[in-house]
Every structure is written in structure tokens, then in C-alpha cells.
Nucleic acid binder design. Structure first.
Lengths: 136, 136
DNA sequence: GTAGCTGCAAACTCTTTGCAACTCT
DNA sequence: AGAGTTGCAAAGAGTTTGCAGCTAC
């Protein structure tokens, strides 16, 4: 994934066995795993990994912007590799997370911030919905 | 505030002294107080109030939709009386919370959800910015 | 060799909860 | 009277951290 490992070593991080495993787990994830989930997947590859290391690593990666931390309306965080910018729609029934992008939205939020006299540094947009049932 | 007390008693809640105080604190708040802040303000009016009651009351009010719970990028919740619908821009330097409304945005998020095959039930939009310094 | 990393367990923060006493209605 | 509410303290959940030993560089 645009070599995560490389970006870490370039940043001066030691490439320990644990970090390699965690990076691999993140790179291969097609969902938005929680710390617990990353931990379980990592443990499957190296059973000695502790959850403290997972927390520490994810925090590091977040600070380096290699990873994006999401705090949906749940009481824990989820992570994903920081690739393209997008937003999320959370299916309230299944918990499934759907990604989407929208150009109008990008413009709009920038414009709103500017009109209020602010530079937009960060933002958060999440939609929570229920699948529309087709009538038969 | 469109009588919070009345809306509570109508819903069958007992109007205890503690609840009156908490409702008054919420009604008078012009900011987005945390549980801790609501607790402190309430305690100033009735020192016997416990924080457990504040938590319980805010949860009740949230379920009844009398209040809106916000979880900005902080590790605690903030509350405000549910009046008009709006969004928030958080000043990353001062922590100040600025409210705004935007019609285009309302349409857009509805449209995005529908295009993805979802009924929009809830959402969250927060902007995080830094005040633009005028050049002299 | 050594700065940085790790596992473990304890500590922390915010929030919830069991229980016995109390209080609106 | 009695269901609902409260304060207290303990428990929960997720996350962070101090420390001694280990490891990549």
C-alpha cells in the first residue's frame, strides 16, 4: 500500500516485527477495523503481540497521517490507511460502513469555513442511514 | 426555553429538585457544556446534586430528543438544548464552538444518502478550523 | 552499544450501575 | 403508598503509561 513500511522507516521508526505485522494487517484491511480487530488479526500472525503495542502503533501512525482515525457513534475508534479522501455512511442496521466522495461537498465545506472567517483544517462528516426497501 | 420542564412532565418524568436545576442550567447555557460543566453549574445551585444524576438526566433528555449530544474530537460529550438544527465549526485554537446552518448542505447530504440507497436517519458534520488572520 | 520498542499490569478517564434510602405524585 | 429518582461507591469500557527487559540499527 504505497509502502507503509517505507514511509515509516523514512520517518525514523524502527521496523520491528510487531510493526511489520500491524502494517500488513492495516494494508490488507478492506474494512475499518477497531483496535481490537487489528489486534486480533495481528495476533493471528504473531501471537506475542500485545494490545498496548497496537494502541501505541496506531497512535503513531495517526500522528504521521499514515492512518485515519474514525470515531463514529460507537464508543471506540476505527482506523483505515490514509489513501484517498472520502466520507462514510454508516448502515444503522448492519453497522456496515460505506465510503463515498462528493465534489460539491468538498467545495461547500471549504466555502462555509471561509465565510465564517476560518481556514478549514479538519472536518468530519458522517451519514447514518437505513437501507431503502424497494416496494414490491 | 419552550418549557423544558413542561415537556418532561408531559413525558411522565417526575419533576424533582435536581431535574429542575439541571433543566435550568441547560436552558440558560449559551455554550455547549460538558457533563462536568453541567454538573458544576448545577452544584452551584444545589450542592447535593451528584454527577451520576447529571449523567442519568442527560441520557434521558437525549433519548427524548430534548437535548443533543455532541462528541467532538474530544474524549467526552457536550450537550445543548435541541432547538434549531445546525452544525458546528470548532476553533482549533480557542476551542470555541461556532454554530452555522446551510441549506445547500441539508439538501446535499439527503441527496447523497438517497443516491447510495439509504434513508438518512442521522448525521454528523463538524468543521475544525483556524481563524484567518487578516494581512495588514 | 544504545535509543527506541515491547509486554505486562496497573492506572486513567469518562460513563454506567447496584443498592438502599428518599421523594414526587 | 409506591413507582420513580437519588447519592454513593464500585464497576465497566476503552485507552494510556511506568517499568524492566529486549531488539533493530
Amino acid at each position: 500500500m504505497t509502502d507503509l513500511v517505507e514511509r515509516c522507516t523514512n520517518a525514523g521508526l524502527k521496523m520491528t516485527g510487531q510493526r511489520k505485522v500491524i502494517l500488513r494487517v492495516l494494508g490488507e484491511a478492506e474494512d475499518h477495523p477497531s483496535v481490537e480487530t487489528v489486534y486480533e488479526r495481528a495476533k493471528a500472525q504473531d501471537s506475542s503481540i500485545s494490545i498496548a503495542t497496537v494502541y501505541r502503533t496506531l497512535n503513531l501512525l495517526d500522528e504521521m497521517d499514515l492512518v485515519v482515525r474514525h470515531e463514529f457513534k460507537e464508543n471506540f475508534s476505527r482506523y483505515e490507511v490514509n489513501m484517498d479522501h472520502h466520507h462514510h455512511l454508516i448502515d444503522l442496521e448492519s453497522g456496515e460502513v460505506i465510503e463515498f466522495q462528493n465534489e460539491d461537498l468538498e467545495e461547500l465545506k471549504e466555502r462555509i469555513a471561509n465565510e465564517l472567517g476560518y481556514d478549514l483544517i479538519d472536518h468530519r462528516l458522517e451519514l447514518y442511514g437505513r437501507k431503502i426497501k424497494k416496494k414490491k
